[in-house]
Design a protein around this nucleic acid. Structure first.
Lengths: 257, 257
DNA sequence: TTGCTCCTCACGTCACGTGAGGTGGC
DNA sequence: TTGCTCCTCACGTCACGTGAGGTGGC
């Protein structure tokens, strides 16, 4: 007669919870060797070895599904480990990007009073975008800066959304189409350009070419204007050219010089 | 009459899905300014500003719940950012530890054929624990090594579980009790010591002191024996002393010299 | 009889994805 | 009439946590 342990003993000696062992039983990852009186789970030594392997693979961060398939021999462990390594690195990279964003915002807020509401947050974000603001102003005359400010007040509250969300999103959509090999005259591309012009018109596009200067600033340095880190693999230059190209394809009547 | 957008337009211009906007509506994070014909969601510019703020905070990795509380003014954004930074760093550290483990295993496996099943994985893990094995052998005589090997074969398949799972777990339990200020004579501590001795007896505890030597190896360098990284904040030394102390409290009849 | 361990549902977590089935205006 | 967008359920994801209510041996 072979010695076995009940679920509580296995849990205590391994450090996982009883509920976890129940779960692993349910999904077939680790089943007890048999059921004793009253349906009690009984775990033999063989099962404990399997438990050991499961714990090792779980410690590596593998999902339970991969662990099971590994143990069934259906997956090449060597390959799984390499994939997992690539996965970990990807997560680490995105984590690092997050860290940069958070610290940048903390730095900007550092010398201010504590924030307590949405309006102050909005102000903080405006301040943290100061780089783009400064860059843009280099493209404008004194008068144009005035025009821009006037229009900005006129556009109303949604300006940050237009500038920081919709505008970059339009570029991303253009990039998707460009990659797909769409022609600049493609109507989907034309729709994007029309909306871009509409937005740049919001801050003075038709008068004195303010909108045109803003667009030029974006074309010359989209990275700083969008506030995105450089390494995000968005070929801004190519997209900007693609968009400019598309703009020239439009019928002349509603294009801005 | 103020201009509004429907859910599809908001989704397209912001880059989130319609389903996401539905969800944010359901949980009250971002509700449309009103419902139009047929219950259609209509989003005004004010809502778009809120959407902008939500997207920024979400980009920082904040959970939706924190985002909502931030926007209600219930949370100090400054503090939230600092907490988030600490959180990101903690995740990054655990990620780095995982990376070390995975690469170590990959290195060990590097010069082997590809793994295809559990037995080969077991072998691979044995090889990767070679450091501990070598260290341990320095504590044993030629004869004791033979004893150990013989007993290991006798114990059967569960040996890796006993050594790599249950043994460290017993130390962790002892550490918990030590931190709680438990007395070495405490019966919970005594139970742990008894089980440790039982386990060391499995690989020859009663004969020639092999088990005693194994215990000494653990006491002298628990980190290398357990295979854990040093920085995990487990004060092995203190635990080992605590356990030794507890062992001396036991009644003499079943103690191993 | 009281405790202790065991059992089986079954809902909750987090932020949505993914159909299923139906409606309303062009 | 066909498309398109909109709507509301409602289940699935991932790995369990957390009771709820009941059983069996000391």
């Amino acid at each position: 007669m072979v010695e076995t342990r009940k679920v509580g003993a296995v849990a205590e000696s391994s450090g996982v919870t009883v509920r976890t062992l129940h779960h692993w039983d349910d999904i077939g990852l680790l089943q007890p060797s048999h059921r004793g009186v009253g349906g009690h789970r009984e775990y033999s030594d063989d099962v404990l070895v399997r438990l050991y392997l499961i714990l090792v693979l779980r410690d590596l961060g593998l999902p339970l599904d991969s662990i099971r398939t590994c143990l069934e021999g259906g997956l090449d462990v060597h390959r799984v480990l390499r994939d997992q390594l690539a996965h970990l690195d990807a997560v680490a990279r995105s984590l690092a990007r997050l860290r940069v964003k958070v610290t940048a915002l903390l730095d900007t807020a550092g010398d201010q009073a504590r924030l307590a509401n949405a309006d102050e947050l909005l102000q903080l974000l405006r301040d943290s975008r100061h780089g783009a603001q400064d860059f843009l102003e280099g493209y404008l005359s004194e008068e144009q800066r005035g025009t821009l400010a006037a229009h900005a007040a006129e556009v109303g509250s949604a300006l940050p959304y237009f500038l920081e969300v919709e505008w970059p999103q339009l570029y991303r959509q253009a990039e998707t189409l460009r990659i797909q090999g769409a022609d600049p005259s493609d109507e989907r591309v034309q729709k994007i350009v029309a909306r871009l012009d509409e937005l740049s018109g919001l801050f003075g596009g038709t008068e004195g070419g303010t909108g045109g200067r803003v667009r030029k600033a974006w074309r010359d340095n989209p990275a700083v204007m969008s506030g995105e880190p450089e390494d995000i693999a968005m070929p801004w230059r190519a997209v900007a050219d693609f968009v400019e190209n598309a703009r020239r394809c439009r019928s002349g009547k509603d294009s801005y010089p």
